[in-house]
Computed example of a mutant assay.
Amino acid sequence: MDKHNIETVFNKYLHPIDEGILMKLAERFEIDKYVKKLGVVPFVKLFIYAQLKQISSLTDISFELNKDPNIQKEIGLDSISKSQLSRKLRDIPPEIFEALLRHLILMVRQKYGLRKGNQKLRKLHLIDSSTITLSLKEHPWAPKNRYTSGIKLHTRVVFYDDITYLDDLIITPARPADLTQLDPLLVKVQGAFHVFDRGYFDFKVFEMLCSRGIRFATRIKDNTFIRVVEEVKLSKSSSILREAIVFLGKMKHPLRLIETVDSEGNKIQIVVNDAKISAEEVSTIYRDRWKIELFFKWMKQHMVLKTMYGKSPNAVYNQVYMAMISFCLTLLIQADLLYKGSLLVLKKHLSKFSLDRYLSCKKELFKPPSRSSGGRKVYDHEQIFRETLKEVEEGTFRG
Rank of each mutant, 00 (worst) to 15 (best):
M1C: 04
N5I: 11
N5F: 12
E7S: 03
F10Q: 12
K12R: 14
L14Y: 10
H15D: 12
P16W: 01
P16F: 08
I17V: 15
L22P: 02
L22N: 01
L22M: 08
L25T: 00
A26R: 03
K33L: 07
K36M: 03
L38G: 10
P42V: 06
V44F: 07
K45V: 01
L46M: 00
Y49V: 00
S57A: 00
T59K: 14
T59F: 12
F63L: 15
N66V: 01
K67C: 10
P69A: 06
G76Y: 11
G76A: 12
D78N: 15
D78C: 12
D78G: 02
I80C: 05
K82L: 13
K88L: 14
K88P: 14
P93I: 10
P94M: 06
E95Q: 12
E95N: 06
E95I: 09
I96L: 13
L101W: 00
L101H: 00
R102L: 14
R102W: 15
H103D: 15
L104A: 07
I105E: 01
K111V: 08
K116N: 07
L124K: 08
H125M: 11
D128M: 04
I132E: 08
T133R: 11
H139F: 00
W141E: 06
P143N: 07
K144L: 15
K144Y: 13
G150L: 05
I151Q: 06
I151M: 07
L153M: 10
H154E: 09
T155A: 05
V158P: 12
Y160F: 15
Y165L: 02
L166D: 05
I170H: 03
P173W: 03
P176M: 07
D178H: 02
L179F: 05
L179T: 04
D183R: 06
P184Y: 00
L185P: 06
L185A: 04
G191L: 03
F193I: 11
F193H: 15
E207A: 01
C210I: 00
I214N: 08
K221P: 03
K221N: 15
D222C: 13
T224A: 14
F225Y: 09
S238A: 09
L241W: 07
E243N: 05
I245R: 10
G249S: 13
L255C: 01
L257K: 02
L257D: 03
I258H: 06
D262V: 03
I268C: 01
N273L: 05
N273M: 03
D274G: 01
D274L: 04
K276S: 11
S278V: 02
R289F: 04
L305M: 15
L305P: 04
L305V: 04
G310C: 02
K311T: 14
S312E: 08
P313T: 11
V316G: 04
Y321G: 08
C328Q: 04
L329T: 03
T330G: 07
T330H: 02
I333A: 01
I333N: 05
Q334E: 15
A335H: 14
Y339C: 05
V345A: 14
K347V: 00
K347H: 07
F353Q: 00
S354H: 15
Y358D: 01
K363G: 02
K367W: 09
P368A: 10
S370C: 03
R371T: 12
K377G: 00
V378R: 14
Y379F: 09
Y379G: 00
Y379W: 02
D380H: 01
E382P: 00
F385Y: 15
R386C: 08
E387R: 13
K390N: 13
F397Y: 13
